[in-house]
Design a protein around this nucleic acid. Structure first.
Lengths: 333, 333
DNA sequence: CTGAAAGCGCTTACAG
DNA sequence: CTGAAAGCGCTTACAG
C-alpha cells in the first residue's frame, strides 16, 4: 500500500510539486484562486497528509521537544510532564518523554538519542552527572532548559522552586505550632542534587532565625529504600524529634508508613509537613500540611524559555528562576 | 555552526558516503579492516552523529511509538506510560506521550499528528469517539494496540484488565466481610467506556451469585466533578449502602473525601474497596483494600503485541487480552 | 502565477 | 572491497 506523496497530489491536481508545497505552507499569494481550489480538492480526494519527517529534514525543525525527567516516580515529575505536554500541544509541538531513572549514563544516552532525532530543544531534570555534556550543549547553542534542579556556573536557564523558602515556610509553621525538635528527611544528596541541598539549607537557616539548635542528628538523607532505617535512627535518638519535614512526596509516604506501623499519633507524637502537595493530603487523617510547588507555572515558564531559545529570541542572560512555594496548613501540624 | 554530515565524514576518511553508511549500519563485511579503522577514526575526530531524521526518511522507520492516553490524571495511565517507556527503551525506541483529555477531537488530532510524524506504531487508551478512524488505521495495516479499553468488532489487539473479575473480587470480599448493601460508583459511562461498563457488569453478576438484590440506586456513574453529588444521593437513600466499590482511583479519592467530611467510619459505617492500588492504600487509616491491575505485565504485553505488528510477524488473529486482577485485602473492608 | 532544479542527510541496489 | 547514482518526500530559491 503505497503512501501518497506530494508528487501524487501534484499530478492529480495538474500542477507542480512546488505549488502544492506552497499550498501546504499556506502561501496562497503565490497561486491563483483556481489553482488553490484544485490543490485543495486533490488533497481531499487523495486524503493526503504531508510526511513530517521529510519536512523536518529540509526545515531543520521537528516540532518536537524532549523531556528527560530524573525520576518519573515523583508525582511532581508526572505533573510537570502533563503541564508541559499541555502547553506545548497548544503550540503544535509534541513531547518525547524519557526517564533517566537517576542514572547519568541513561540520561546521556537519552540526550544523544534526542539530539540525533533532531528535537528542537530539551527540558531536563538533570541528574547532575553529565556536566561536560551539558556544557557542550550550551556551547553549541542547543535549546536547553533545566527544571527542578540547578547546576552552578553553567549559564543554563533553569526553573525551580525557591527551595530554601519552602523549607523555611515549613519550619516557621512548626515553630508557630509549638514544635522545637524539628528534623528533616530527604532522599540522597550524594550527587549534590540542588533542591535537596537547598531545602536543608533553608531548614537550617530557619532554625537559626528562631534561635533553635541545628543538630546533624536531625538531618537525614538516604535513598528511598533506606528511609525506613533512617527514620528508625531518628526515633531512637535520646531526644527524638517532635516534628519532621519530608523533603518530597516519596519521603512523606515513608514517614507516614513508619508512623502508622509504630502507632504514633500525628501531630501529638510527631508533627509532619511534606514538600509537594500529594493528592491524598486533604483527606488523610489527619489531613497533611504541605508546601506546594506552582507546577503549572513552572512548566509554562520552562516552555516559554525553551521556545524563546528555539526561536533565537533570547538575547538576555540565562537566568535561574525560583518560583515561590505555598504552605497549605492542614491538620498534621 | 554547520552540522557535520556523512559527507564530511566521508571526505575526512577519504572514502565514499556509501562506505560510511555501511559502517554506520555495522555491515563491516563490506569493507577492509583499514577502511573500517579510518571511518571509525573520522567519526570520532569529528564527533559525528547520524541524523536520525534523514535515516527515517529512507528507512521508513522512526523507532518512535506514540502513546495516547485518554486521561493522564489516572495514576494507572502514568504507571503504564512509565512501564511502556521502560520496555521500549530496551528496544531502542522512544515514546511520544499524548494526553487526549477524554476528548475525541483531541485524540483524532494526535493520531493524525503521530502518523504524519511517521511513528512506527501507536498504543491508545481509546476515547471511543473515533471509530471510523480506528477502522481506517486497522485497515491500512498501521500497527495499533488498544490499552485499558476495548471496542467491539474492530479486530484491534487490546490489552486490558479482566474488569468483570475485578468487580467480582471486590463484591465477594464485601460479602465475606458481612456487607450486603453494596454500591458501586464509577466515572461517567456516556461513551460506553468498556472498563466502567464491565466493572458494573461484574458487580451485578457477583451480587446475583450471592442472591443479593441489584438496585439501580446503588449504581452511580458521574463525571469526576459530579461524584460528590452522586455520593450525597447515595448516602441519603432510605437504605444507604454499607459498602462502596470505587471504580477507579479518582472515584476512590472522592469517596474518602466525602467520608472524612461527613465523619463516617470505615469500615463500620461503610466499607470501601478501590479498583487500582493507590500509593497511599497501605498507610491510610484504615488501610484501603484494593483490587490491583498487573500494570507492568499489561504494558509489556502491549509493547510485545505492537512490536510484533511493526515487524509484520502477526499472522494470528487480533485478540483481546484480559489480564487478571488481584485483591489486596487491607483494613477498609 | 507557475514549475524545473537543487538540496536536506541519509540508504540501497548496482556496477566494477 | 568501494563508489557513483538514484531515491526517500519534502522545501526553497530562482527563472520565466
Amino acid at each position: 500500500m503505497k503512501n501518497i506523496t506530494i508528487a501524487d497530489v501534484a499530478k492529480h491536481a495538474g500542477v507542480s510539486k512546488s505549488t502544492v508545497s506552497q499550498f501546504l505552507n499556506k502561501r496562497y499569494e503565490y497561486m491563483s484562486e483556481l489553482t488553490r481550489k484544485r490543490v485543495e480538492l486533490a488533497i481531499e480526494e487523495l486524503d493526503y497528509r504531508p510526511n513530517t519527517v521529510a519536512r523536518s529534514l529540509t526545515q531543520k525543525s521537528t516540532f518536537t521537544v524532549g523531556v528527560i525527567v530524573a525520576n518519573i516516580l515523583h508525582s511532581f515529575s508526572t505533573h510537570i510532564i502533563r503541564a508541559i505536554e499541555n502547553k506545548l500541544y497548544e503550540k503544535g509541538f509534541h513531547i518525547i518523554v524519557c526517564n533517566a531513572d537517576d542514572e547519568p549514563d541513561k540520561e546521556k544516552e537519552y540526550i544523544e538519542m534526542l539530539m540525533a532525532k533532531q528535537v528542537d530543544g530539551i527540558i531536563i531534570f538533570p541528574t547532575g552527572g553529565n556536566i561536560d555534556l551539558y556544557k557542550r550543549m550550551k556551547k553549541s547553542g542547543f535549546p536547553l532548559v533545566f527544571m527542578d534542579r540547578t547546576i552552578p556556573d553553567l549559564g543554563i536557564e533553569t526553573v525551580l522552586l525557591d527551595n530554601e523558602k519552602a523549607a523555611e515556610l515549613a519550619v516557621n509553621h512548626f515553630v508557630e505550632s509549638g514544635c522545637s525538635q524539628i528534623a528533616i528527611v530527604t532522599t540522597s544528596i550524594i550527587r549534590n542534587i540542588s533542591p535537596r541541598i537547598e531545602r536543608i539549607q533553608g531548614y537550617k537557616r530557619a532554625l537559626e532565625n528562631h534561635q533553635l539548635n541545628v543538630t546533624s542528628d536531625y538531618v537525614k538523607t538516604a535513598d528511598a529504600d533506606a528511609i525506613p532505617a533512617a527514620l528508625e535512627q531518628l526515633f531512637n535518638l535520646e531526644a527524638p524529634p517532635n516534628a519532621i519535614l519530608a523533603g518530597n512526596d516519596i519521603v512523606l509516604m515513608e514517614i507516614l508508613k513508619y508512623i502508622k506501623e509504630h502507632e504514633l499519633k500525628i501531630p501529638n507524637d510527631v508533627a509532619v509537613i511534606g514538600i509537594d502537595d500529594v493528592p491524598f493530603a486533604s483527606f488523610y487523617t489527619p489531613s497533611i500540611t504541605t508546601v506546594s510547588q506552582p507546577m503549572i507555572e513552572m512548566a509554562n515558564l520552562a516552555v516559554t524559555l525553551l521556545m524563546r531559545q528555539i526561536s533565537k529570541e533570547n538575547q538576555s542572560e540565562a537566568e535561574v528562576y525560583r518560583l515561590p512555594p505555598t504552605l497549605i496548613a492542614r491538620g498534621s501540624c
